[in-house]
Write a protein that binds this DNA or RNA. Sequence first.
DNA 1: ACAAAAGTGTTTTTTATACACCCATGC
DNA 2: GCATGGGTGTATAAAAAACACTTTTGT
Lengths: 257, 257
Amino acid sequence: MPHRLSSAPNRQRKGNRSDDYCDELKLADFRVGVDNVIFSVDTDLKRLLVLLVMRQEEPFLGQWSLPGTLVRNGESLEAAADRILAEKIRVQNLYLEQLYTFGGPMRDPREAEVSYGVRYLSVSYFALVRYSEAELIADGVSGIAWYPMNQLPELAFDHSKIIQYGHCRLRNKLEYSPVAFEVLPDLFTLSDLYQLYTTVLGEHFSDYSNFRSRLLKLKFLQDTGVKASRGAGRPASLYKFDAEAFEPLKDKALVFI
Amino acid sequence: MPHRLSSAPNRQRKGNRSDDYCDELKLADFRVGVDNVIFSVDTDLKRLLVLLVMRQEEPFLGQWSLPGTLVRNGESLEAAADRILAEKIRVQNLYLEQLYTFGGPMRDPREAEVSYGVRYLSVSYFALVRYSEAELIADGVSGIAWYPMNQLPELAFDHSKIIQYGHCRLRNKLEYSPVAFEVLPDLFTLSDLYQLYTTVLGEHFSDYSNFRSRLLKLKFLQDTGVKASRGAGRPASLYKFDAEAFEPLKDKALVFI
DNA sequence: ACAAAAGTGTTTTTTATACACCCATGC
DNA sequence: GCATGGGTGTATAAAAAACACTTTTGT
């Protein structure tokens, strides 16, 4: 989210009270929240999914939102992201990285209640988990569900914006980094990999044959020789990702598309 | 800064006091700081520079650090980034974007003074300014200086890490986005552009002739016909960046290198 | 036998890379 | 006139894109 400006910084004035200037110079007190954009890919139905939870409290009670939490004493941002994730979902593999920090004043309606009260800041994290093994944790009352990216409901706060930003990051990650293997089984077929890519990037990025030969030429996918038969059709070879062989390529751009 | 994990989240315990558990569940109080990694490119000396300021107070008094500030009441993160930038430097053009949020507990020694006091969180911003027109604002006492990226002094806090991260982002930005034009004069020669690229990316990314023909083929650089004579040698054509013509390319990867 | 899925190969087009060379100016 | 920086072109190699075809399975 770049930004251009050519003049002076723009102060946001909030009213006409006489102590305004003083208040502006005061440091803001912050609560820091962590919001997770958790993606998974349902390759069978060819859908990219985001995990949403129903809010159990005000503000936005009863609306869908990203799973989030406020950061506790002694807890790192990433630990908070891990915690909220572990509360909602059980997974063996995941990829997690920081996304963006949203912190304009008044992005959280709780700030309005007391005019110079605490500010709420959201550090968003982006996660990718394996759909097949992900178990949602239903704690009785709470609504929790995978929503397809193209059928998102109305969301609390600025969470729609956060998801769009996360979606963007996911697509980029797939193009130049081996995230896919974090979320695929240890042994996978090249079609598994291809389907994951087409589901996220769309069908138009490359045809299977070219995708296949490009990746194999890079030499970091090892053919285990083991065959996997899935219903009709010729059985596919199971491959594994060779992290060591990938090392030298990790700074190169555009390895995947 | 990606992160992998396959087990449960890791809580950081801080001691053996009996109310530990309670404290952990308490929400942390945050001060939010903004730190700017401000780059500029000295094409004459072929150096990439970062703006550093000498700290005037504890902690790290007398050490070099990134220009930073704590966020005030009613001020957005970006406004804080703008403010601190405007306090240190006068520029007509700049590119500014958010970099990363560093927020582990104990990254700021001020947190240690009172064991369960406020936490300090740093939202870093990344800026690129035009070197030739940038005027540093010396407010008497304060030390402020451009440091070449390859001769950085020891820095306060985790600021070295933040700069490395910023450097990484700058190189990527140059490769796939038109940041360079934010920081070049409206009219520039192709050598100006090329020198900016070689200074940041190194000499090895492409030779001038190929760089030139690749960019011109993309049709978003308009030859104004005006010639610029700079000492000896054939006068160069002045070009301008055509933002409209660039539009369709803005999502494409690797337009520049 | 044949449909379905996997895997191979070939052709064409585009892009990258490494150069060699010509052009316009100041001194 | 020649050094200096600007600009053009060409030959070769590599990569991307399109698509035809073969192989191996289940039914």
